[in-house]
Design a protein around this nucleic acid. Sequence first.
DNA 1: TATGAATGAGCTTTCATTCAT
DNA 2: AATGAATGAAAGCTCATTCAT
Lengths: 192, 192, 192, 192
Amino acid sequence: MKNAERRSQVLAIARDVFAEKGYHAAKIDDIVQRAHIARGTFYLYFTDKRAVFGELLDDLFGRLRTAIRRIDVTAAEPLLDQLRANVRRVLALLFEERALTKILVSDAVGLDPDFDEKLLAFYGQVRAVIEGSLAEGQRLGLVQPCAPELVATAVIGSVKEIVYQTIFGRLQASADDVVSALFACYGRALLR
Amino acid sequence: MKNAERRSQVLAIARDVFAEKGYHAAKIDDIVQRAHIARGTFYLYFTDKRAVFGELLDDLFGRLRTAIRRIDVTAAEPLLDQLRANVRRVLALLFEERALTKILVSDAVGLDPDFDEKLLAFYGQVRAVIEGSLAEGQRLGLVQPCAPELVATAVIGSVKEIVYQTIFGRLQASADDVVSALFACYGRALLR
Amino acid sequence: MKNAERRSQVLAIARDVFAEKGYHAAKIDDIVQRAHIARGTFYLYFTDKRAVFGELLDDLFGRLRTAIRRIDVTAAEPLLDQLRANVRRVLALLFEERALTKILVSDAVGLDPDFDEKLLAFYGQVRAVIEGSLAEGQRLGLVQPCAPELVATAVIGSVKEIVYQTIFGRLQASADDVVSALFACYGRALLR
Amino acid sequence: MKNAERRSQVLAIARDVFAEKGYHAAKIDDIVQRAHIARGTFYLYFTDKRAVFGELLDDLFGRLRTAIRRIDVTAAEPLLDQLRANVRRVLALLFEERALTKILVSDAVGLDPDFDEKLLAFYGQVRAVIEGSLAEGQRLGLVQPCAPELVATAVIGSVKEIVYQTIFGRLQASADDVVSALFACYGRALLR
DNA sequence: TATGAATGAGCTTTCATTCAT
DNA sequence: AATGAATGAAAGCTCATTCAT
C-alpha cells in the first residue's frame, strides 16, 4: 500500500473512531489497532492527535465551502433554485458524511480555543456568504428589510440543529424535507 | 462559612473555570485554588468533576424551563406577546448567565454520552413545547401548515446559534434585536 | 452516657467494622457513623486508627493469656484434664468472639511490622507455655522425646488453622470436636 | 530487553518488594524504581497492583500443587516415604522461595475478599488431598479412626505455622527437622 | 518505512487526622 | 466533651508521544 493510500486509510479510521467515541475518549490505540498499524507508524503520517482531528475538520470545511456557492444574480438559473441547490448540496454532504458531521456538530465544539476559533471562522465565512446574498437581494428589492447578520446566523443555526438532531436520531428527515421546511420559514418570510 | 454557602461558592467558581477553560482543560486544582480551599474540600461538596458540571447544567436547564412557558390560547394576553415574552425571558437569562451559557452551548456538547443525552433530553422538551404551540396554533387556524418538528428544531437552532455567536463575540445583539429578527423570520412566515 | 461506656461502645463497633471489612477497607467514617458520633469525637477516645486496632488485639491477647494456664504437675487435677480445659477455654473464647478472632487470624496478619511483631510476641509466649509444659512432661517421663519448639508450634498452628477455617465457614466443628481431634493427634502421639 | 524477560524481571522485583514491605506499604514507585523502569512501563506488563500480586500467588500455588502428590497405595514406594517426600517437597519449595512464602503466609491473608477466597480455595484443595489420603488409609486399615477434615486442617496449620515462624526468624528448623517432628506427632498418632 | 517498548507528566480521588467553634 | 468542616499528602493509573532498532 503506498504512502498516500495508507494515510487516508488511517484518516478514515480516525474519523470513525472520533465519531464513535468523541475526541477525548478516542485513543490513539483505538485508531492504530483498527488500522492494523503500530503506534509509532501513526506518527509517521500525522504530527499528533489534534492534527488528525484538525485535518478531518478542514476536509469537511473544504467540501462544505465547495457546496456553498454565492447566489449569482446574473445567472440564468432562478435565484430560488440556486438557493435550494445550495441547501441541498450542504445537506446531502452532511447526511452522507455522518461521521464527519458528528465530529463537526458535537466533538469539535468546545474542544479547545484553537478549534473553537476554527469553527467560528468557518461559520463566519458561511455567514458572510449568506449575508452577502441577503444584502444583494435587498439591493435588488427581492428581499424584505431585515437584520442580515441575525437572519444569516439563524439560518446557519437552523441547519446545524436539524443536522444535529438528525445525527443523534432525534429527528427523521430527508434533505428534501429540510429544504422544504427551511423555505417555508425563511423563504416565505424573507422574499417579497 | 456554612455548608450551603461554601457549596454555592465552589459551584460559582467551578462555573467560571469551566467557562474559561472548557471542561477538559479545567482542573480540579484550578477550581480549588481560586476558591482558596484544599483539594479534599472540593470532594466534600461534590462527588466528582462531572457531578459539578452536571449540577451547573441542571441548574441552567431548570431556570430555562421556568423561563419557557407554554402558550396559553385562553389567556387574555395576545399570543404573539406571550411568544415574545418567552423568547425574551430565555435570552435575558442566557445573556445574563454568560458563563453557564458558554458551558451549555460549548463545553457540554460532545462531552460524553451521558451529557449528550442530557442535552438532547432538554432540547427534546423544549421542542415538544414549541411543537405543541405550533400544533395548537394550526388547530386554531393561526399558524400556516408546516412540519412542526422541523420548524421547532429550526427555532431552537436559531436561538442557539445566535446565543453561541454572541457569547463568542462574533455577534452584537440585544435581546430585543434577536426577538425582532426571529419574529421577522418565523412570525411572518408562520402566522396567518 | 459516661466516658468509659462510650469508649467501649466505640471499641465494640470498631471491632465489628474491622471484622466485616478488614483493617484497610474499614474507614473511620464507617465506625463513627455506626456509633452515631462525630468524626472528631473518635479522636477524643483514641489516638488513631491503629491504636483502636491494637487495643482490640491486646484485649484478645489478654483474655487468651488468661485462658491459657500453665500445667500444674503438683495440682490434684489430672494433667490431661488440665490440658483439655486449656484448649477448651481458648476455643470457647475464640468461637464466642468471632469478630475479634477474625481480626486476629486474618486482618492483623501482615498489617505492618509493628503488628507482626505483636502477633509474633504473643505466639511466642504461648509457645513458651506449651514448650514449658512439654519439657516438664518429659522431665517427669510423661511425654515422649520430641522437639518441643516444633511440636509447640505445630499445636498452635493446628488450633489457628482450625479456627481460621471455622471462622471463614469452611469447617463446621464444635469446641469439643476440636478438642477430641487434637487429642487424638497430639495426645496419642506425645503421651506415654 | 525482550518482553517476557522484562515481565519476569518486574515480577521478581515486585515479589521482593511485597515481601519486604507488605502489600499495602509496597508502592508501585518502589517497584519501578528498583526495576529502573518508568511508572508507565509497569502498566505495560500488568493491569494493576493487585494483578501482580495475584500472579505471584497463583505462581506459588501452582508450584505447591505440583509438589503435593496424592498418595498412591498401589505404588511400590512405601506410603510413609511418599508422605515424607510430599512434605519435603513442599517445605523445600517454601524455604527456597522465602519472599513468595512471606507473601503467602502474611501479606495475602485478609488482603481483600477475593484474595481470601483464593487462599481458602487453595487450602481447600490441599485439605481435600490430605483427607483423601487419610480416608484411603482408613479403608486399608492403615490409619486410625479420626475426623479426617479436622486432622487434615491441623496438618495444614502445623506446616503453615512452622513455615511462618521460620520465615519470621522465630524458629530455626531444616526441612528434615520439620518432617521428623510432624511424623513424630501425626505419624505416631495416626498410623496403626 | 515500520515497529512497539518505554516514557513520565499529570490527573483524579481518598481518607486519616486536625482544630476552630 | 462534642462537633464536622477543612486539610493535603499520597497514591494509582492513563495515554500521547518518543526513539532505538
